[in-house]
Computed example of a mutant assay.
Amino acid sequence: MNSGMFFVRLLLLLIIYPSITYAQQVADTASLFRNPLLQSGPDPWVIRHNGFYYYMHTTGVDIVMYKTRKMSDLGKAKQVRIWTPPAKGPNARDIWAPELHRINNTWYIYYTAGSSDSIHPQHLFVMENKADDPTTGTWVDKGQLKDPAADNFALDATVFKYKGQHYFIWSGHNGKDNLQRLYIARMQNPWTMATHRVEIAAPIYDWEKDGIPVNEGPEILESPKGDIFLVYSASACWTESYALGIIKLKKGADPLDPANWTKMPTPYLTTNKENGAFGPGHNGFFKSPDGKEDWIIYHANSKAGQGCGGHRNPRIQKINWQPDGMPDFGVPVSINQPIRKPSGE
Rank of each mutant, 00 (worst) to 15 (best):
residue 98 P to S: 14
residue 210 D to C: 04
residue 116 S to Q: 02
residue 184 I to D: 02
residue 220 I to C: 01
residue 109 I to S: 08
residue 162 Y to H: 15
residue 127 M to H: 08
residue 24 Q to F: 10
residue 315 R to C: 07
residue 76 K to Y: 00
residue 173 H to V: 11
residue 86 P to C: 13
residue 169 I to D: 05
residue 186 R to S: 09
residue 239 T to P: 02
residue 72 S to Y: 14
residue 69 R to L: 04
residue 11 L to N: 03
residue 292 K to H: 10
residue 290 D to Y: 03
residue 18 P to T: 15
residue 124 L to D: 10
residue 202 A to M: 10
residue 319 I to K: 14
residue 343 S to C: 14
residue 168 F to S: 01
residue 112 T to Q: 01
residue 48 R to L: 00
residue 116 S to L: 05
residue 311 H to N: 14
residue 292 K to W: 03
residue 195 T to F: 05
residue 245 G to R: 04
residue 197 R to D: 10
residue 208 E to V: 07
residue 155 L to M: 03
residue 181 R to D: 11
residue 51 G to R: 05
residue 6 F to C: 09
residue 192 T to E: 13
residue 333 V to P: 02
residue 274 E to F: 08
residue 177 D to T: 08
residue 317 Q to W: 10
residue 120 H to N: 10
residue 226 G to F: 01
residue 3 S to R: 07
residue 182 L to C: 02
residue 17 Y to P: 00
residue 290 D to G: 11
residue 230 L to G: 00
residue 25 Q to M: 12
residue 123 H to E: 13
residue 57 H to I: 06
residue 304 A to M: 00
residue 321 W to M: 07
residue 215 N to K: 07
residue 204 I to R: 08
residue 276 G to A: 12
residue 2 N to P: 11
residue 280 P to I: 00
residue 4 G to C: 12
residue 255 P to K: 11
residue 173 H to L: 05
residue 308 C to R: 15
residue 292 K to L: 01
residue 95 I to A: 02
residue 209 K to R: 11
residue 267 P to T: 05
residue 37 L to T: 00
residue 243 A to S: 10
residue 58 T to N: 06
residue 246 I to S: 10
residue 43 D to M: 08
residue 241 S to W: 09
residue 240 E to H: 13
residue 242 Y to P: 13
residue 219 E to S: 13
residue 337 Q to C: 12
residue 150 A to K: 09
residue 132 D to A: 08
residue 8 V to F: 14
residue 150 A to R: 07
residue 195 T to Y: 06
residue 142 K to Y: 04
residue 341 K to W: 00
residue 26 V to C: 02
residue 94 D to N: 06
residue 303 K to E: 04
residue 234 A to K: 00
residue 316 I to W: 07
residue 9 R to Q: 02
residue 183 Y to Q: 11
residue 148 P to I: 15
residue 102 R to W: 12
residue 181 R to Y: 02
residue 31 S to N: 15
residue 99 E to C: 01
residue 296 I to H: 06
residue 62 D to H: 09
residue 312 R to A: 00
residue 142 K to N: 06
residue 103 I to C: 13
residue 171 S to P: 05
residue 40 S to G: 15
residue 168 F to V: 09
residue 177 D to A: 02
residue 105 N to E: 13
residue 73 D to N: 04
residue 270 T to P: 11
residue 214 V to Q: 01
residue 217 G to Y: 03
residue 255 P to D: 14
residue 122 Q to W: 11
residue 253 A to T: 13
residue 293 E to K: 15
residue 93 R to C: 15
residue 174 N to I: 13
residue 38 L to C: 03
residue 89 G to E: 15
residue 228 I to R: 01
residue 302 S to C: 12
residue 232 Y to I: 10
residue 234 A to E: 10
residue 2 N to I: 15
residue 110 Y to A: 02
residue 257 D to L: 06
residue 333 V to I: 14
